[in-house]
Simulated scan of single mutants.
Amino acid sequence: MAARLFDMRVRLRLGTLLMALGLLPALLSGCASLARHHEAMLVLGDLSAGSEESRLKRRTEAPRREGVEYVRRGRAYRADVYHPLEPRRGSLILVHGFTEQGRRDPRLVALARTLGRVGFRVMVPELDGLRDYSISTREVQAIVDAVHYATRTGSQAPSHTALAAVSFAVGPTLIAAMDQEVASAVSFVVAVGGYYDMTDLLRYVTTGEDRGGSAREAPPPQREARWAVLMSQLHWLEDAQDRALLESIARRRLTDPESSVRDEARRLGPSGSALYELVTNEDPGRIEALIDKLPPALVKELEALDPSRQPLDRLHARLVLIHGPQDRVIPISHSRRLRDALPQGQARLFETQALQHVAVSPDWRDGWGLWRALVHVLALGEDKGEDE
């Protein structure tokens, strides 16, 4: 689901709106700011165009893509690195979401090329746990190792790099950015539609209650979200039959939400039943007790992937949060709470109606918030964190 972020449909009228509302302050603040504002519009236009012609494509050279393999402390990885013709904004590591195509997902490739055209050296590591829905702290370590690689390779490689992630990949990415081995090397993190508190995320996905936000604010959760959560945790079950049965249940319900899975549920063992009970529970008050019934290894991983349980003072990087108020997978309250948990000024939240979780609405009026966020990211890439 996270990869849909990159399939943007920004209408041509967006340019007129941004020219009218956004460029006036830039004209008053100087040529560099004006160029950045204009460049942000070109980026949005290029993402909208997809593989078709765009003004950005006509004006810039596509980055050169290099497939690389690297090893750190016995751990082997693959990645794609997009080298810009004019490297002027440092390195940016794109952490892909849940997608079987991994680093070669066409929408991710398009975004990497677009960012390369505006001067980022973009690295897209292959993360196995996000390809097969088995996300764990293994992904945290892989992102840490990617930062090591990005900051120590290339004849003109910068000493700092940035990170960008969406949805369920935001948690591992934030935790990696706080790792003491690389924290000082991460300049900023872009988090789109991410989570802050794992327990409250599970509560919302399964019961619809958003304890971190207003009772009237959060929309009802997507029915599919609970099954995606189930798929992402199956690898922690030791019983192969439980894994197979739960995968069958999840895939059937993702295909047909009304499909009967009673027979498979009756055949589950104790650990499988505990996970199934959590995912199908509809009582907000039972979440903590149901989590405690899960296999210890799974509970440990859930806690390790929970940003709210981490020492956030270890995060040195600036944080750019982008979230839609009507997100039906992860409520916007998570980004608000994360912003508020950090020192004032370290995190900035861009709320935009354009986002339906991480998919972008075709409503041209909603491009304003995304454009402002992009201007801010371009400024941070130049090591200029000023407001647009």
Results as ranks from 00 to 15, higher is better:
Ala218Lys: 01
Gln346Ile: 00
Arg348Tyr: 03
Tyr196His: 10
Arg104Cys: 02
Asp105Met: 05
Tyr204Arg: 03
Gly67Ile: 10
Ala317Met: 07
Ala62Gln: 10
Arg314Met: 09
Leu275Val: 11
Ser273Tyr: 10
Ala110Ile: 00
Cys31Asp: 11
Gly193Tyr: 03
Pro219Asn: 07
Leu21Ser: 15
Ala304Trp: 05
Phe120Pro: 03
Glu301Leu: 06
Glu126Ile: 05
Asp306Tyr: 08
Leu127Glu: 04
Ala191Tyr: 01
Lys300Gly: 02
Pro63Asp: 07
Ile175Gln: 07
Gly116Val: 05
Arg223Met: 01
Arg138Thr: 14
Gln346His: 06
Val279His: 04
Cys31Pro: 08
Glu277Tyr: 03
Glu52Ala: 15
Val186Glu: 09
Arg72Lys: 12
Gly74Cys: 04
Arg286Ala: 14
Pro25His: 10
Ser361Glu: 10
Met231Asp: 02
Val182Asn: 07
Gly381Phe: 09
Val144Trp: 06
Val360Arg: 01
Pro270Asn: 12
Ala40Gly: 06
Leu246Gln: 04
His37Ile: 01
Gln310Cys: 08
Gly369Gln: 10
Met41Glu: 05
Leu294Val: 06
Gly324Pro: 02
Ile135Thr: 14
Gly129Pro: 10
Ala142Gly: 04
Gln141His: 08
Val118Cys: 11
Gly90His: 03
Met198Asp: 08
Val320Ser: 00
Glu217Gln: 12
Phe350Ser: 05
Leu237Ser: 01
Leu18Pro: 12
Ile332Trp: 04
Leu338Asp: 02
Val147Ile: 14
Glu301Val: 11
Ala265Lys: 10
Gly369His: 08
Arg58Asp: 11
Tyr276Asn: 13
Val81Ile: 05
Val320Glu: 04
Arg88Ser: 15
Thr206Ser: 07
Glu288Lys: 15
Gly324Thr: 04
Leu42Lys: 07
Leu34Lys: 02
Trp236Gly: 00
Tyr70Val: 00
Asp256Asn: 14
Glu303Ile: 00
Val95Pro: 00
Leu342Gly: 06
Val147Thr: 11
Tyr276Asp: 15
Gln346Thr: 02
Ala191Phe: 00
Arg103Phe: 01
Glu388Lys: 02
Ile93Val: 14
Ala359Tyr: 00
Glu126Asn: 08
Glu386Tyr: 08
Thr153Pro: 10
Cys31Leu: 14
Val377Ser: 01
Ala32Trp: 14
Ala3Glu: 13
Arg152Leu: 08
Leu28Trp: 09
Glu388Arg: 06
Leu268Asp: 09
Leu92Gln: 02
Glu126Pro: 01
His323Thr: 09
Gln101Glu: 14
Asp383Met: 12
Ala183Asn: 13
Ser271Ala: 15
Ala35Cys: 10
Met123Ser: 02
Glu69Val: 07
Pro295Trp: 09
Ser361Leu: 04
Val192Thr: 06
Arg73Val: 01
Glu258Ile: 05
Pro284Met: 02
Ala225Glu: 09
Val377Arg: 03
Ala347Gln: 00
Ala157His: 03
Ser214Leu: 13
Glu139Asp: 13
Ala215Lys: 13
Ala79Cys: 05
Leu202Arg: 01
Asp242Thr: 03
Thr153Met: 04
Gly208Phe: 09
Leu268Phe: 15
Leu14Ile: 07
Val190Met: 09
Leu111Ser: 07
Ala177Val: 09
Thr16Arg: 10
Met178Glu: 15
